[in-house]
Design a protein around this nucleic acid. Structure first.
Lengths: 338, 338
DNA sequence: CTGAAAGCGCTAACAA
DNA sequence: TTGTTAGCGCTTTCAG
């Protein structure tokens, strides 16, 4: 393998200096058309490819943004990542992805790795485990843009893009009530994550506003998964005061609930079920599943836009914006009470 | 913001030279325990964070691998990416993701971007549009490891991780025949991509081996999506010689087929349906969908392993390995002929 | 419009 | 065991 060609090779070939080559290549105005053309052609002829590493080292800008998510395997995050990458790509930014797998240690590692890679900023959604946020503060201390989405944290005074989770919980519950259900249960996670608490608050508020009692035994704390949904439904079915509808923490949990209800001969919409996230499968299962759309595509777009805005600012954290997206109820068969 | 601390600051603080600091930090053996300890402590005290960019520029190794996929939104690729990242992480490599969105131009751009970012290697799956592979050859010319998975290309003499697609097509068809179906149609894409051709060959071979006729009119060339599945099924339902089972190009297409069959009162398994990819939803739709598992997790793991192996070699392309995974038939209700 | 030269932060050969 | 020094490839200030 012959060595990679650098601007030195181009300079040598044309008997000019590297600075001229550099300027010609980077569209510097005060350059004669002739030399610019000569440089461009020679670059192509020698198959020159710029070393962004060197320019990054010099300029301090890598044009790379770090993205930390629990896992790219969740539809919600995949969709967001897709849109972040798409939104940044046309402005010359690429993204490095780091998955926390819902572990704080991984997350801490991720922040460190990304900072060492000299990313120009970080866009993140926290792991379920994360309580202490010192690692995120380090990003701010290094005076780099940090943007949080969906799973955010109040202790961090940074821009956020979130869903109105209170409203999501409220709307889901209200939807069920409007469809005629009266004893509504709620399955959520044990983790003290803001978004789940907010949904729960929304649930309680909707019940209160519509004159229905809030029963603590109808709130199930567990995990979020198909299996957890089955477990939750089982518990609820064993109660004396059985619910006639269930709000499940996400669509997978809702799916588990649906399975268990079918088994028990109470196929939705006999007992109403609504989930969160509008996963791909929700539309296609039987009965198809009512859910709350969390607009991940829009969230991703806003993240990208927010980053691009931030780097234009003198002081990144001067006026910290908080964008809140509104959830949308998607009513399908699983809540269509006859 | 005070400037970031570098090894110079540490050196100055301890009245030693940067080389000593560098050596102490990188675990160089010939260093006294005392200085090593002093350096480590001072580093921590000054909140030192290494600039990997500088070391990468110097050493020519970024410890970053570029990954190019059509889209992270497809479950299959998300799963592979997850496993690649996981497999490389513990060896100190991170990944940069580039999505082609099934466009060659994006893909060409992706290769260029990643090479300019000086990645240590690239792991890719080609876009549906890709015919010419000159951009991938550039990676080889730069003497960097290139690994292709799933959507590969014969013109490129590089390591590959693929599914045995012939076998996948064969097994899907055989499964239907074993379940008692006799007139089996096949919906595939118009794109001349090897994997789809191989599946088609497998389909034809299975029919031939089991003494069933191959009917050209039963092979539908279109796109792969829910809508395309509906269109394909519609065409097949209008024929005089209607099929009694359909192999669909992927699970989304299969889903469209199922929808249309339900509409026509021929709900599977009355007409059998099998897809490819084992998407999350396949298990949960009604009737739940038979499919071919393509083992994305294993594929991702193998990609990571292959890369780690390759960089150990003197000459990356000395003995090019081709790993072929075997598909697994997952038989569910949609092919359970009564 | 172009050239000379310093330096981004780190590594490593060579010297001591 | 530690210091000196050159340089990775590029940008940019200052001079011409």
């Amino acid at each position: 393998m012959n060595k990679k060609t650098t601007i030195y090779d181009i300079a040598q070939a044309l008997n000019i200096t590297v600075s001229t080559v550099s300027r010609a290549l980077s569209g510097f105005p005060a350059i004669s058309e002739a030399t610019k053309k000569a440089v461009t052609e020679t670059a192509k002829r020698l198959n020159y490819s710029p070393n962004k590493l060197a320019s990054a080292l010099k300029s301090g800008k890598t044009h790379t943004v770090g993205v930390i998510v629990p896992s790219v395997q969740a539809q919600f995050f995949a969709s967001i990542i897709h849109c972040i990458e798409d939104g940044l790509k046309e402005y010359g930014y690429r993204i490095i992805i780091y998955q926390s797998n819902e572990s704080v240690d991984n997350e801490i590692n991720g922040v460190r790795t990304l900072l060492e890679a000299q990313v120009d900023g970080i866009i993140a959604s926290m792991s379920l485990e994360t309580v202490n946020v010192a690692h995120f503060e380090e990003i701010i201390n290094q005076n780099k843009p940090l943007i949080l989405f969906d799973r955010v944290h109040d202790a961090l005074n940074v821009p956020t893009i979130t869903l109105n989770d209170f409203e999501a919980g409220y709307a889901a519950t209200q939807h069920l009530i409007e469809m005629g259900y009266k004893r509504i249960a709620f399955i959520t996670t044990v983790h003290q994550i803001k978004i789940f608490n907010n949904r729960l608050r929304g649930y309680k508020a909707a019940l209160a506003d519509l004159q229905l009692p809030v029963l603590e035994e109808h709130i199930i704390y567990g995990g979020l998964s198909v299996v957890d949904g089955e477990l939750g439904a089982e518990k609820l079915l064993q109660m004396n005061n059985q619910p006639d509808a269930i709000v499940a923490g996400d669509d997978f949990t809702a799916l588990g609930v649906v399975n268990k209800l079918k088994e028990a001969g109470k196929t939705p919409p006999e007992v109403g079920v609504i989930g969160f996230a509008n996963e791909v499968f929700s539309e296609y299962i039987t009965p198809n599943l009512s859910t709350i759309d969390q607009h991940p595509a829009q969230m991703g777009k806003e993240c990208a836009k927010m980053f691009l805005n931030m780097i234009k600012q003198e002081n990144f954290y001067q006026n910290v914006e908080h964008i809140v997206l509104n959830p949308t109820v998607i009513g399908r068969q699983s809540t269509r009470k006859i």
